[in-house]
């Protein structure tokens, strides 16, 4: 299966978008080569601003550009975008509800060798808790392009969580991302795995493994963490009676929390959360880290089996 990193798809989507929409501007903080905004810079140098190693300033500058009708995409690593510039996102972007798109790359532990200082495990919790913020977690290259497009059509601030490592392409080119509408990747009766980002591919693999053992599980892909597709989650709970969430993020505050909140309020069923268990990551190869921290297809399959 072809693998493409979502950051790679982001860089390409920006170039396409830049050609279509003259109001799109791109800001980076000395990571354009890594975040892949460099492609946009090459095509549209006068609409690209490198703010240097100054993330707070990048977010504030984007806010100012947005007040004048520009559509700024800001990129840096997720850990810096949401951590270093948290207050700027809160005060200068989210509170005034400005249309600033924060497309953060290198999210999660699959950053790999750089280690915990560069691995955001709490960015979704921070951005999900932020009023006005829309949160996308694309699972593949096609969803990334869709999220970029959808972000432009959104009203207020948008967070797009992107990864460093290659992930399988799950959708055909005809796939259309509808914000807030979860995608049923696979239908099943015994349990539902609700996943986002690169864990969607792992969830599909887990479903295959379980099918071989006669367990029929569905996979729901939540590419929009906010607004959350409450109906799709409740439907899955009603149909299958057991839910496992899977995310490359802390089990606190991200997808697992969002689903647990939804089930608790609307349709409580047994559930388990696969994700980082309140710990930081460390250096290692992405695959090694996914194994060590329990984020593989096997881990998901085990969670399903222990639940039903």
């Amino acid at each position: 299966m072809t693998k493409i990193a979502t950051r790679e798809a982001y860089g390409q989507a920006l170039v396409t978008l830049g050609a279509e929409n003259p109001d799109v501007v791109v800001l980076d903080a000395d990571l354009a080569k890594s975040t892949k905004t460099l492609a946009f810079k090459k095509h549209f140098p006068h609409r690209f601003f490198d703010l240097g190693i100054a993330e707070a300033n990048m977010i504030g500058t984007a806010a100012g550009l947005a007040t004048a009708g520009k559509i700024p995409f800001c990129s840096t690593f997720a850990v810096f975008a949401t951590g270093r510039a948290y207050d700027q996102i809160r005060q200068s972007v989210a509170y005034p509800n400005l249309h600033v798109i924060i497309a953060a790359t290198h999210a999660g532990i699959t950053v790999g060798e750089d280690g915990a200082s560069h691995q955001s495990v709490e960015d979704l919790a921070l951005m999900r808790a932020m009023p006005n913020m829309t949160v996308f977690v694309p699972a593949d290259a096609v969803e990334t392009a869709g999220a970029v497009r959808a972000a432009v059509a959104c009203d207020g601030p948008v967070y797009i969580r992107l990864g460093r490592s290659g992930v399988p392409v799950l959708h055909g080119d005809d796939f259309e991302l509808v914000p807030g509408k979860a995608v049923e990747m696979r239908r099943g009766l015994d349990a539902t795995i609700i996943a986002c980002g690169l864990m969607v591919a792992q969830a599909l693999e887990a479903a295959e493994q379980l099918a071989a053992e006669g367990i029929d599980v569905g996979v729901l892909n939540v590419h929009t963490l906010k607004p959350l597709d409450v109906q799709a989650i409740v439907n899955a709970a009603q149909r299958t009676g057991a839910i496992v969430t899977a995310e490359e993020h802390s089990i606190i505050g991200g997808l697992g929390s969002a689903v647990a909140e939804t089930l608790a309020e609307h349709y409580p069923v047994p559930m388990l959360r696969v994700g980082l268990r309140d710990v930081f990551g460390e250096s290692g190869k992405p695959d090694e880290l996914l194994r060590k921290y329990g984020l593989t297809a096997e881990d998901i399959a085990n969670a399903v089996q222990s639940l039903i």
């Binding site: 609409r47 500058t61 806010a63 550009l65 007040t67 004048a68 520009k70 809160r90």
Partner: peptide
């Protein structure tokens, strides 16, 4: 009111963005 403020230290960056937008337009 051109910008929501209150958290100190942020306004100049926003003003920069406005000034850049003027140039772009």
């Amino acid at each position: 009111v051109e910008m929501s403020t209150g958290s100190l230290g942020q306004g100049l960056a926003v003003a920069n963005g406005m000034a850049l937008a003027a140039r772009l337009d």
